[in-house]
């Protein structure tokens, strides 16, 4: 690629040379042009050769000033700029790393805070659930106890009531038998019959 570019440059240069060479020659032979020759080729003129010496000195001075002073100055500015840009990029990269770390920390803190809050909420809910359960159990036990006591009382009352009923029924039956027949039934028979009747009726 570079070599082909070089060869094209060379070809173009040689073409330009040949065409450019033709032009002054044409000018020299053009009608009306004064054919006195080219002053550049008048090497007998000391000024023509003198400019080479002066040119050499001036070129040398220019080269020395450029290479020792002017160009290093440009190079220094360019190097400073490169350094400044690199430093700024470093600072920016570091700042970005800090910011990323801060964001990570923030996310981490947020995550742990959320986890902690969630755990607290769960603990409170669990506590409440346990407390409610215990309360329910206590209440159930208390109610069961109340029911048991009430049932015992009912049973006692019922037994007492039923005991009285047999006695009343026995006495009532003795009175009725006595009034109807004028006789009395033995107490144990009457008690047995009353008991059978009460049992048959579910008392």
């Amino acid at each position: 690629m570079a070599r082909s570019a070089v060869s094209i440059t060379r070809k173009a240069a040689s073409l330009a040379t040949s065409s450019a060479l033709a032009l002054p020659l044409m000018a020299m032979v053009a009608p009306g042009a004064r054919a006195v020759g080219m002053p550049q080729l008048d090497f007998a003129n000391p000024l023509v050769t003198g400019q080479v010496i002066w040119g050499g000195v001036i070129f040398l001075v220019l080269y020395l000033l450029l290479s020792r002073s002017a160009l290093p100055k440009v190079e220094k500015v360019l190097a400073t700029r490169r350094l400044t840009i690199e430093n700024d990029l470093d600072i920016a990269r570091r700042a970005k790393a800090h910011a990323d770390a801060a964001v990570d920390d923030l996310h981490q803190a947020r995550r742990s805070a959320m986890a902690e809050a969630q755990a607290n909420v769960e603990k409170v809910v669990e506590d409440a659930r346990v407390a409610a359960l215990r309360q329910t159990q206590e209440m159930n036990a208390r109610l069961a106890e109340d029911i048991r006591q009430a049932e015992a009382r009912v049973a006692a009352a019922r037994a007492e009531a039923l005991g009285s009923l047999r006695q009343i029924a026995g006495e009532t039956a003795q009175v009725l038998v006595h009034q109807v027949s004028g006789t009395s039934v033995p107490g144990d028979v009457l008690a047995s019959r009353v008991n059978d009747a009460a049992t048959a009726r579910g008392f």
Binding site: A27, M28, A30, G32, A33, R34, V36, G37, M38, P39, Q40, N45, P46, L47, V48, T49, G50, Q51, I53, W54, G55, I58
Partner: peptide, 28 residues
């Protein structure tokens, strides 16, 4: 009726005689 197309390339000493002796023309 003539055109001196090449006269522009002539060298002339500057600073008069000093330029001539130093071969110092408008080119340097």
């Amino acid at each position: 009726s003539t055109i001196d197309a090449l006269g522009q390339f002539e060298l002339h000493p500057v600073l008069g005689g000093l330029g001539q002796s130093l071969r110092f023309s408008q080119s340097p």
